[in-house]
Design a protein around this nucleic acid. Sequence first.
RNA 1: GGCCCGGUAGUUCAGUCGGUUAGAACGCUAGCCUGUCACGCUAGAGGUCGUGGGUUCGAGUCCCAUCCGGGUCGCCA
Length: 595
Amino acid sequence: MADFMNGMKRTAYCGEVSVDMIGKELVLAGWAAKQRDLGNLIFIDLRDRTGIAQLAFDDSTGRETFGKASSVRSEYVLMAKGVLRRRESVNRDIPTGEVELYVSELRVLAVSETPPFDIKDGIKTNEELRLRYRYLDLRRNELQSAILMRHRIVKLARDYFDKNRFVEIETPILMKPTPEGARDYLVPSRVHPGKFYALPQSPQLYKQLSMLAGFDRYMQIARCFRDEDLRADRQPEFTQIDIEMSFVDEVDVQTVNEGLMKDIFKEIMGMELELPLRRITYKEAMERYGSDKPDTRFGLELQDLSDILKSTEFAVFKTALEAGGSVRAINIKGAAATLSRKEIDKLADVAKLFKAKGLAFTRVTDEALSSSFEKFLTEAEIEAIHGRMDLKTGDVLLVVADPRDSVVFAALGALRLNLAKRLGLIPENTYDLLWVTDFPLFEYDPDEGRYYAMHHPFTCPNFEDLEKMETDLGAVRARAYDLVLNGTELGGGSIRISDPAIQRKMFAALGMSEAEANDKFGFLLEAFKYGVPPHGGMAYGLDRLVMLLLNKESIRDVIPFPKVQNASELMTACPTHVDTKSLDELSIAVVREEE
RNA sequence: GGCCCGGUAGUUCAGUCGGUUAGAACGCUAGCCUGUCACGCUAGAGGUCGUGGGUUCGAGUCCCAUCCGGGUCGCCA
């Protein structure tokens, strides 16, 4: 049976014992990371969340205590009282390596089975196993420091916004389903058979109503839920740092958030951020980087060749241009040596993944120039392209043409990232933070044949584009902005519509009747009759921020208890079946279920 | 829903052209060991080769299906 803790109180953390505590009697507590039994001499590495301290036992140690020490195995929970002394041989690899606790009393508070994998940093264990035993994986320093960084960022954000007179307001977790946008997680109502709540995809409407209520500056560390497929940087349940402000324009919101970023980079990373941050428009981001979340840590920028080729006879380019599309290219400087014909064919597969029909190229080596398309062009066209692209010996030019600009951007944008990674063009330990502004208000869905709100239907149009709300939806710009870090969207926000007339235009543009708008958002429209301050806000993905700051590949590495790709949790094995009684109470009949 | 990658002792992996008793390291168990810290030495245990089916004289290896995990496209207002 395990020992009790009675009468013993921890007096120090393992990682914090130091030479100036030598001679003091201390009580340490933690997990046995390692036991080294040398016969008449035993050492135990005791681990807690601050680090490791060495416990020492020898033949002057009481027989019972020595016996316990020799029975200790990995992950036993121990409490040890003793006097801190200088080690006979110092370990320079750990901060506490000059001292050890010479133990007079040892309590084994809990034994442990041999853990299914080693609990140490840098292990290469299969993630499935680590997730099944997440509580063991979380004992590792690597994960502990990620969770600690989360804590520090959240604390810092709360302090920062408090200092700037923001109020943290808790918004409901059970709320009205929102039919547009991501799929909702639904929660059945027992009291209202056949009716459902939804978990929030974001506290959007409540934070806007908080502005209407006069709180003026709102913030929340908000848990959000989206029932969509997962990715390395996407979980069904995630955390946002969510804010909303009244009597502000875009720059006011951005300025407050830049201040937070500056504090985070300074306090967490020890880096000075230059403010104001760089701003580029959506249009420029797409044209130069082929992405609305451009990674600008490296070049490989896109160039438009459409004007040079406007009267070309080459069918591939000609049909793209005649249909209103474009021909664009990137020059991969000096890559001819590394990119063989075969490699370029593989790049074509990448482009095809993004619906490009093919990838045209020119490869210039010392020996020869090989090109998939130049034989179809005139001398003048070739010369103009080489000039604009600065094409020299050793370079590889990649060209994508398509009737849809979006395909050209997506394909070249993906190639750009792919090549930068492969060729090692991305500098390490560089954090490139910028605003992308002037997003389009609408996005066309060719399948449905209609426009959707790119952000959400409460995003304010740019006033200069108001008349286009009736004539040219695709050209209307939104007062929306994204914060981008190293090619990942960290957060986004907008100035909201506070004018009922503009809101009506918005719903009309989305093909939503007045009745439909009232049914879905009636409470908001009603509220907006009673004095709406101009307002706007922003939300950041906390998980992504921590992931990027720690240079992790996956968001799972910074979430304490994450879900796997099929949205289940391996440790508790949820979701799960529920008993018929529970379903009956909810008036729910299951028509199809998983084994 | 589509495509791609992976699954062999507790863990990380190797396993040749389909061939006889499936290996290594670490971990684990036992014994010895007074300055270790990747302790050392000796001995030992440990396998449904993800699962099911098929081809074959013979399958970890080939084929089909399926499960699990990862990446990605669609999706993510």
